[in-house]
Design a protein around this nucleic acid. Structure first.
Length: 301
DNA sequence: AAATCTATCAACCGCCGCCAT
DNA sequence: CATGGCGGCGGTTGATAGATT
């Protein structure tokens, strides 16, 4: 035998809450605190389902809620956390004080999605729209894992244990990936906190093309897209890897296409080690900083 | 001024894991 | 151990306000 039902649905109100209902709910929680949503409606004199009371309190009546527009910094944090966690609104909300999962979800669907689209980014996978389209159509490319590897892993389970692979160090309030979730080929050892909460992080749409095997650490972020386009346009017959402005001919070797998605953090370099053989068609890996690294076989122009 | 369209967001719905019975 | 309710979550809906025609 299980429990008895939480409420008699035929005797409950639905729709918008009245001021009186709000006051009853607030007063009850002020006196008795949160908890036992099942018995709360009756105790508070409300003709509402316990679930409805909980939702009303959490999303609207809670005194610690932050009202008003989202700041630019909050935008960035949400985008960054979404790139790491996917549609885990409760987890994202837990890292934004005063914001609810519902609020963030709505804000994502109404504002941020559009913002990302207008910036040429697919909000689902945080990849450039062109790149994600090309990845599915390029005949030379084999199956490529999704860019949001962590989110994909997390979405296999729905509850909080979905981020059990993220270790929280309370001494410095940092979050770090633990066993298995950090890709063995591309690793930059960056933490979620570094990614999401560093105010200096900027939306990173950088694209670099070049060698990957045993290469020196390079920063792609110092080369802006305009300059890269310019260089590639001027010298289309040769693929160059760009090391802070210095170029290396890569046409005789494998090519690592690395594009950073999400936020830049301290100019993290691609450390892709996937390039074992130039005969490899495509090896796709992902770093924890959400940079995508893909290896393409040698091309001739 | 009225009709229509669009954007926003509060609230509902249904699912899932946990756990009381 | 099996059952089924609770709490929590993400997806979706629908009411409303504001913008546009």
């Amino acid at each position: 035998m299980g429990r008895s039902p939480c409420c008699e649905k035929e005797h409950t109100n639905k729709g918008a809450w009245t001021k009186e209902e709000d006051e009853r709910l607030i007063n009850h929680i002020k006196i008795h605190g949160e908890g036992c949503w099942r018995s709360l409606p009756k105790a508070a004199g409300l003709l509402r389902c316990g679930k409805s009371c909980r939702l009303r309190w959490i999303n609207y009546l809670r005194p610690d809620l932050k009202r008003g527009n989202f700041s630019e910094e909050e935008d960035e944090i949400i985008i960054n956390l979404h790139s790491l966690l996917g549609n885990k609104w409760s987890l994202i909300a837990a890292r934004l004080s005063g914001r609810t999962d519902n609020e963030i979800k709505n804000y994502w669907n109404t504002h941020i999605k559009r913002k990302l689209y207008s910036g040429g980014i697919d909000p689902q996978n945080h990849q450039p729209l062109n790149a994600s389209a090309a990845a599915t159509t390029t005949p030379t490319a084999t199956t490529v894992p999704p860019s949001n590897t962590v989110a994909t892993i997390s979405n296999k389970k729905r509850n909080n244990d979905s981020i059990s692979n993220i270790k929280h160090d309370t001494s410095n309030n940092n979050f770090q990936f633990v066993n298995g979730t950090e890709d063995s080929n591309c690793s930059s050892g960056v933490t979620i906190e570094e990614l999401a909460f560093n105010p200096h992080n900027q939306l990173n749409l950088d694209l670099s093309i070049g060698l990957s095997t045993n290469q020196p650490k390079v920063s792609s972020s110092t080369i802006n897209q305009e300059n890269k386009n310019k260089k590639l346009k001027q010298e289309p017959q040769i693929l160059y890897q760009l090391y802070n402005g210095n170029k290396v001919n890569t046409t005789q070797q494998g090519v690592c296409l690395c594009y950073g998605l999400g936020f830049q953090s301290n100019n993290k370099a691609c450390s892709c080690k996937a390039m074992g053989s130039a005969t490899t068609t495509v090896t796709a890996t992902i770093a924890t900083n959400n940079d995508m690294c893909r290896f393409y076989q040698p091309m001739s122009f």
